[in-house]
Amino acid sequence: MNIDSIQRGIVLDHIKAGRSMELYRYLGLDALECSVAIIKNVKSEAMGRKDIIKIDDNISIDLDVLGYIDPGITVNIIENGRITEKKHLSLPETLTNIVRCKNPRCITSAETGLDQLFVLSDRENAVYRCRYCDTPLKTKDA
């Protein structure tokens, strides 16, 4: 399988196999006019299988969304066909308008216009809590 290398853009590497379409939706990549390649089930020594997304433009990426969905992803910034920057992600301290609180008693279920806010309360177990009602959300629920 042959995918052209890109001159200027972004490569999202080390995506857990099978999660690239989810990322594609969360990052709104369907709205881009540039070329976007999703490569699934690539053989990887470290991961067994992984997905890769190549974006043929240096767009602004919400690293908090990426870190929340999969903190193992590497973001490679490409200029003139070379990697100029490699960003390793971690779980962000806060999530703003990325996920919704599922607690029916939470004010966010009744009041429109409120930001959906989650705060990382336990990094080891990747537990976020709703800033309003403290209801926990695990990253696997994403």
């Binding site: 607690n103 008693r105 939470c106 004010i107 966010t108 279920s109 009744a110 009041e111 409120l114 709703c130 800033r131 309003y132 009602c133 403290d134």
Partner: peptide, 10 residues
């Protein structure tokens, strides 16, 4: 006082 959790924070 409000029946919804987090209303005072909002």
């Amino acid at each position: 006082r409000h029946p919804k959790e987090g209303a005072p924070l909002a």
